[in-house]
Amino acid sequence: MTLPEDYLRYPNRRHGMDHDRYEWSNLFRRNPVSWPGGAKVALWVCPALEWFPLDMQNKPFRPPGGLERPYPDYRYYTHRDYGNRVGIFRIMKVLDKLGIKASATVNSAVAERYPFLLREVTRRGWEVIAHGVDMAHLHYGGMPEAEEAAQIAQAVTTLRELSGQPVTGWLSPGKSESHATLDLLAAEGIEYVCDWINDDMPYPLKTGQGSLYSMPHSHEIDDRLILLQYHHSERDFTEQVKDQFDTLYKEADKYGGRILSITLHPWVIGQPYRIKPLEEALSYIMGHKDVWCATGSEILAAFKASQ
């Protein structure tokens, strides 16, 4: 047996990355970032407001949280739906109590279907980050570009109209992109993207259309990942959030401001028995001085200003 000749040819073996979307850079050799008020850590809490349609096809892959049973899958549909009806309001109560302003990643379908929920988000001064149309509308390699452009326009336009916010942040459903996604987002006026999980700080992305940044929306400090995928306990979740914070807080002394990003799914962490462990973790963080609660746009603006 022999592999094709080109299996041992490496056209992109060169200094830097094997693509031209961004430059390699060592986090610990960058200009230190300063946050407003000399804060050490910017706390960026991102609850996801998702809708998993009953007829979703999970093509070309099942996004995290996607329905699992044959149609009609009431079991998973309603379990996810719980988050938008009940779970998110538990989270809001905790965040209100601690004075934390969040950034919600919102499917445009949620904004259309549940205007009450969207108003609860905006009246708190939370930022709305576009999170695609819904969890059935994925972005992926090989999808027709026109279809993707229309999907992005639909999500962004709807969210801008309904929220009254400029909506400059984007998180793709399942953090999945095509080769064209970044260009299409920049063309739509998006200024930062939350899909790339290769850094703890923002960094510039290259597009054909102008300025776009990657923001470190957390993959690891995520209730669904830790509790449902890793099957860790609630206590483990709390510990890991605290440990993440402690490391970043300490690093800030030497390397400049850091970002603690926490990804929440109301259908996971908003369950009655899980909400206190979240409160404990957030109270621990808020019990420190030099913590700056901010939205994605505010963090990015401060980051750019201090470069």
Binding site: Y7, L27, P60, F61, G141, E177, S178, D195, W196, I197
Partner: peptide, 28 residues
């Protein structure tokens, strides 16, 4: 490139999550 003997499971290229998760090692 595809190796005909073994294709690890993943999403269609570009698998941004898989790729960037590993790239984290070299930056951070």
């Amino acid at each position: 490139p595809i190796n005909p003997t073994w294709t690890p499971p993943g999403r269609p290229v570009p698998d941004v999550m898989y790729y960037s998760q590993r790239d984290f090692g070299n930056r951070v």
